[in-house]
Design a protein around this nucleic acid. Sequence first.
DNA 1: TAGATTGTTAATCGATTAACAATC
DNA 2: TAGATTGTTAATCGATTAACAATC
Lengths: 217, 217
Amino acid sequence: MSASEIDRIPEGVIERLPTYLSVLIQLRQEGSFTVSSALLGKMTEINPAQIRRDLTHFGSFGKRGVGYEITTLIDQIQHILGSDHTHRLVLVGAGHLGSAIASYNGLRARGFLVSAIFDNDSHKVGGRIGDIIVQDISELGRVVAEQSIAVGVIAVPPEAAQDVADRMCEAGIKVILNYCANLVKVTDGVTLHNTDPVRELLHTLYYLSRTEGVARV
Amino acid sequence: MSASEIDRIPEGVIERLPTYLSVLIQLRQEGSFTVSSALLGKMTEINPAQIRRDLTHFGSFGKRGVGYEITTLIDQIQHILGSDHTHRLVLVGAGHLGSAIASYNGLRARGFLVSAIFDNDSHKVGGRIGDIIVQDISELGRVVAEQSIAVGVIAVPPEAAQDVADRMCEAGIKVILNYCANLVKVTDGVTLHNTDPVRELLHTLYYLSRTEGVARV
DNA sequence: TAGATTGTTAATCGATTAACAATC
DNA sequence: TAGATTGTTAATCGATTAACAATC
């Protein structure tokens, strides 16, 4: 079978790749050179067979009897995800959450660069977050066009989220990550990822009231 | 069939409940009283049949020909999740991310109360975030025990995450939400939820390099 | 009654896992 | 060669969906 055939890759596979990547990077830092699916499975709590099967969607990266060369696998996964080059992104919302995102080292470490920050609050516009000066939200379209930016992050209060999403879609943003509690709608062709921190907590809560049935999620 | 029979509830069902809850709360705010699975499906982009099936795991909350009474359904889901009463939580990490979490209104709105904030940086200990004074991490065990707190949130730099997780497990925390990029290990019986914002972005990135195959995730 | 929408079954679909031959 | 571990198949398992009788 040819791995380059673009068969539909299950959503779950794509979701697990960044997890593999995190662990691989961790292992490389610790000085390891190769890793088996068994060890990877132990670290991620994902079935080793599943890890091997996930990877074969994209090719054969391992050596039988040996395992996977860590650096090679990191490169491959980064290539698959498209994180083998830097992605500039725009951030809307210069409040606490926006500041946290903008000053988060993990972003740069994994190939993301905050190019511009926007807000609609005139008290915040002109201020600084790290090295970046907060601009008025009306500048969003211009900046996105000029720098052909594809990724947008929403970190505004719930009631403003849909408006920001609309502006991003209109500006030509292709991937939106929404950190706000309100679900938003986007234009066809725009990939949307809603991640509400409290939704995660609520979900987790379910297991708290059930002494048995504890899950790792 | 009896809905109170505790059959294994699929993980996916539990994950969707908070999404339903968000939309229901939004609808109630807008003044609606009832909702059909069809409308709920349109708003969440989840198949209506699935929504109905998800709910029957816990009982029959709707009226045929009418739909679901919004307030009733909110109450039921909150009861299922255990968010029908307030949960106190401890937050470790008084940096940008910790501040964002602590000052996030959505927490209180959905039944969470930040009881205490900890850090190991003596410059931060004694400082204030909102109404709360940052305490030294060594106080964690005492506070958790005294207030019998079950939920802990990790918002520290990657290299400190495992240490914080260990302290939380030892203190008797039952649910840990880890916002840090490093995966952590926890004691058996503790529910762990890793949510790394950048991992979400990486996952989403996959769809960016593929003009076709855009997904809503 | 006629129309609507649930609860529930049965069919489909896809993802996970065990097992093992291939091969380093 | 003997041991290890991959890539891959086939079996299992579970989740999603369509369809419809029940019933408001």
